[in-house]
Amino acid sequence: MRPFDYQRAERFEHAAQLVGEDGTRLLAGGTNLIDLMKLQVETPQTLVDIGRLSLGTIAEEGDGLRIGALATNTATAVDPRVRRDYPVLARAILAGATQQLRNKATTAGNLCQRTRCYNFTNIDQPCNKREPGSGCGAIKGIARLHAVLGTSDQCIATYPGDMAVALAALDARVEISGERRSRSVRLRDFHRLPGDTPWRDNVLDAGEVITAVTLPAPVGGIQLYRKVRERSSYAFALVSVAAVIGIEENRFTRADLAFGGLAHKPWHDPRLAELLVGSEPSLALFDKAADLLLEDARGYGENDFKIPLARRTLAAVLCEATGVEP
């Protein structure tokens, strides 16, 4: 860990002003940033602690729900409105990390958590995300956790979180405030693919701060979050699926699906809903959906298994939601 300055922001404007400066990082729950500082993956000169800003409120807004950037994962997961109207979100949060971590981790911090690629967290290894131009140690190395969709020859890291996968299925928006302007971005567009700039995880520009995540009006339906992993807690997803499914008269009326563990971002492919909505659920249909989803999937040896595993997990979720028997 490098020596650093610590400042506590008392007002939002103060934080927004400081975060525009080079070498400054915002500190919220610290569950990811502090670990990375110990490993010297992150070496900020200044930490601006925003923990005391009043950004933790969860409140109804219009027909939807606004979750403050500093609402803890635990607070969100136990919120009665979240549990009633957006159960996929509560389930996804509770599938992640541990109770202790969820008590500290925040909404915005969770969206900004960095990849768990072993090369990214080891400063003695090459990593284009950590050190642009140094190469990728994962492509020919240990790639068990890595992406099979949307990869580039620069980076095959995955976005590791669970909460954002549910938010992608729910078509949530990320509220962002900057020095000059405020804007709102669909969660589905918030995280980036690695391309030639893998060091950029998301679309936040310098000086921008996430203030909230907003959820659209509740859509009901069957909401599932399925996370596949070899141990039953405290492990990142090999594959995860968030599903918001509507069925009427044995036809899909809604099929909002998002996937974790497969890509550099929560993966949402609009073609799946187009295929499914209006059709009768069947194993053959689910297989077709998987074909679409995985059309361009590419394994890197160690993670080849994710392609059939994603197919099976998708089928499992759709069978559970629709009652189709395998």
Partner: peptide
């Protein structure tokens, strides 16, 4: 790692003992 031989999963988050 098959290339340089380093141990990739060297903490209790990534080396999975039962929870």
């Amino acid at each position: 790692d098959p290339v340089d031989g380093h141990l990739a999963n060297c903490d209790l988050a990534e080396y999975h003992v039962p929870v």
